[in-house]
Design a protein around this nucleic acid. Structure first.
Lengths: 335, 335
DNA sequence: TTGTAGGCGTTATCAG
DNA sequence: CTGATAACGCCTACAA
């Protein structure tokens, strides 16, 4: 069923039908009613591909996220809020999962796919995997978030990890902690490296030097956190507080602590990162560093939209600042 | 940059270029090399919309899920695994979020959008909202999951809620529980109603009749569970065990219990529903009824693919059976 | 206000 | 094996 068929049945030309489905004012109301009746009767829907082809615009944007494996809710919230922001502005979103576990450079495949679909811009929210796009020819509006090597052609949403981490460390130091452990995700992810560096810098700011044994590198998953913290607990002199690279890791660690009879928020201080909804529902509730998927998604969409609409002309700086959120999992050192 | 431009630069016809990008064997290798060189040089990518238009096929399917609000990981896992299964078969997935909170019939809007995008089929994984499609003219392959009114034109993945729920209830009854409470989601969602009915039927099977006061209807969110269970605790004679309509609700309830000094798995038995990854990491870990998003997504994709490929000819029955998963949150009644 | 003709980028069907 | 030529469904001058 197409525009010509409708036109035939309504005894008008197909251009008239086209005008009507595009809400052009200058059409005889009589014809409008006649055509719309036919459209309703046959259940006609305009073909989006054909429109895009004829118009030269798709009003579609791409969103690339890291794989949601193990159900880390962080990225699913990114998707939800990004989509919502886009739909509000009349854009559609094509979502692409970069399967970074098996093929790190899968991000490039995703970009290709999206380009073939003629997206008008791409938001790369992988927090680390965008480095595999370094040699990829970028010829459309594109934004990264928290990338550590800023490219001239790609806008980057700066992430201020330091502020939140420093607030968290200050909080712990105020409590009297000196031996603060760190549960890191894989350090070949730039965002993980950046967080770690921020942590070390924060410590140094308070006159503390981080001993090597106090950093554990693990997968940033529930299981990674659960097993990673064992390395800290088994130390001859374990830390009195632990900062984790994300909430999922922290919740995994929390589980291990609980199983060993160690109470976070009493025997040991534990801090997460992200501020997932579920942080309020762990026991104890999890103090964390806010890195809100909702705010990030909105920021990313706004940045991309500006890039699409304004091009190089107006390049506002977009920045996201993290903050410490106090809940129940932190406490004074227990010796 | 298009096929004609490539043809011009490589001094061949555009049909030859078309053949080459479609890997048609019968092309002179010399030309292949020449054309591919140009393609690489200019960074040409075929236009997907144009291809779809010319081919009359999009190799794209639609997936409609309920909104992910509050970050319920259930739907995000559905999306992930559905997408993965589809990509494996050379299909792309268009994801549509049905914002059922504000506009229940938003599902219909999603279907329209997907139809305009010429998807070859749609999987509706809303577990309840598909009823708003009742009067919608269905003219393409479509599947539902767990729908309670089976339509002739739509394939439905039957969900056997009863088996898992009965196993859970048997487990509780074996422990000696007689007063078993139920924390339900909004009962105007068909999947919520079906679960509830299954629960009552299971109870009856063990000779227990459910007193009205033991059922609480709440939002099936973290907060809903956290506040909903209060109504059960405040009863003159509270239940000794509680079954929840999903894990998120159960985890919310777990939090409230913890704050009141009631230990799930010791003072009260608590059972969830879904088996989210995080169930293993709550304290205590959550006994639940397995309703695996991964398996459901795979099933849904297979069903839809068969519907697309075979049409009405071969209609296998697809069914998903739930099962009880024993962890630490259940125990004998504590009086 | 309406209709006609041409084009968007690709595939497919023909002769050559 | 290659190259015209005509679709695919829609939009948009331009002409009537």
């Amino acid at each position: 069923m197409n525009i010509r068929e409708i036109a035939h049945r309504a005894r008008v030309s197909h251009s008239t039908v086209s005008r009507i489905i595009n809400n052009i004012e200058t059409v005889d109301p009589v014809l409008v009613r006649r055509v719309q009746k036919v459209i309703a009767e046959v259940g006609y829907r305009p073909n989006h591909q054909a429109r895009a082809l004829a118009r030269g615009r798709t009003r579609t944007i791409g969103l690339i996220v890291s794989e949601l494996s193990g159900g880390n809710p962080f990225f699913s919230e990114i998707i939800l809020y990004f989509e919502r922001a886009a739909v509000e502005q009349g854009y559609e979103v094509l979502i692409s999962f970069a399967d970074t576990q098996t093929h790190p450079d899968h991000v490039a495949v995703c970009v290709t796919r999206l380009q073939e679909r003629q997206v008008e811009g791409i938001a790369v929210m992988t927090f680390g995997m965008e480095r595999y796009l370094r040699d990829y020819p970028i010829n459309l509006p594109m934004i990264y978030a928290g990338s550590d090597n800023e490219l001239p052609k790609v806008r980057n949403i700066r992430i201020d990890y330091l502020t939140g981490i420093r607030e968290a460390v200050r909080h712990l130091v105020d409590f009297g902690h000196q031996r603060i452990g760190y549960l890191s995700g894989q350090l070949d992810w730039s965002s993980m490296r950046t967080r770690y560096n921020a942590f070390r810098r924060a410590l140094k700011g308070f006159g503390i030097t981080l001993e090597n044994e106090l950093t554990v590198e693990c997968e940033h998953t529930w299981d990674g956190g659960a097993s990673g913290i064992v390395n800290l607990l088994n130390l001859p002199k374990p830390p009195t507080a632990v900062l984790c690279c994300n909430d999922v890791t922290a919740i995994g660690a929390l589980k291990t602590l609980g199983m060993r009879g160690i109470q976070a928020g009493k025997d040991m201080a534990l801090v997460g990162f992200d501020d997932l909804t579920m942080c309020r529902f762990t026991q104890p509730s999890l103090s964390t560093i806010r890195f809100s998927p909702m705010e990030l998604a909105n920021l990313a969409f706004r940045a991309l939209l500006e890039e699409i609409q304004e091009g190089d002309s107006r390049r506002s700086q977009f920045e996201y600042k993290t903050h410490f959120v106090l809940r129940e999992s932190t406490c004074a050192p227990n010796r």
